[in-house]
Amino acid sequence: MIELLTGMVATALLAGGVLLLGALGEVIAERAGVFNLGVEGLMAIGGITGIIAVAHGAPALFGMLCAMLTGAAFGCVFAASVVLLRANQTLCGLALTVSGGGLAAAVGQSYSGHPAAAVFASVHIPILSALPLFGRAVFSQNPIVYVIWIVLPLALHALLFRTRWGISLRAVGEDPAAADASGVHVLRVQFAAVVAGAALAGAAGGFLTLGYITSWSDGITGGRGWIVIALVIFGGFKPLNIALGALLFGLITALGFVGQARDWPVPPAFLSMLPYLATIACMIVTPFLVRRKRSRFLAPAALGVPYFPEQR
């Protein structure tokens, strides 16, 4: 039983880490009022970029950096469309998902099915990994895992809720006209937030192919980009809550794997459905939570609404 649980936690940190990285990116964009539905496409692009980079001899960390930069580049295209030109965010997000997934699959044709040339190696932290129960599962991961689970959520929380920069960003997402009047350059903040978010989505793809699954195949993202968007809503647009939610989703994914490995009397297809069904269940539960806690978990007021300075 203990073995089962520790195995689950080890997988959950990897599977949930991919979701958390993407969700932290998405929350930056959504806090600035831009709804980026293209996470799935950005993750696919990041994933194949990472695979190609390591195939050309780069170390895994550099591969993930390349994934991040490619994500940012595609984020620039998206931001130019929805922030500068104010095109429909839903349409552009869907376009990014479709074209990103198609592009990644087309480029990645010759890399499909091969293991990644370099992956993140796991590091045993001396004393901590010898701790009983979860010591081995939690402290023998690759170092990026700690960055994703500890450094990034805390840093983003501090950035959003404890700095001047964060209050500008949130003001833009709540009431861009008021932010504009108080001297915040709305479009510049939104552009930066979208690009930063896209960079993290690309990095999530790189982590998926170099740190978690460690190979490339068509449709490897498998809806993770959409679960990420649900996770942001489920986590009430707060980085720390999102981290807890990502852990929950990671554990649910791991539960499916454990079931397959242990030959539970459920067909594997149904175990693979778990993350999707759990996400839908969470989305249906969230409104009840929001109603109880009033406005603290609500979406930014101007989320998805393009801002026209001249119509202020």
Binding site: L85, L94, A95, S99, A106
Partner: peptide
């Protein structure tokens, strides 16, 4: 010899173009 997925990228581009064009 091009992957059939390349055409998905093209349809995405068409959709993006339509969204931007509508606003323009």
């Amino acid at each position: 010899g091009v992957s059939k997925y390349a055409v998905l990228a093209l349809t995405g581009l068409v959709l993006l173009g339509a969204a931007v064009g509508e606003r323009l």
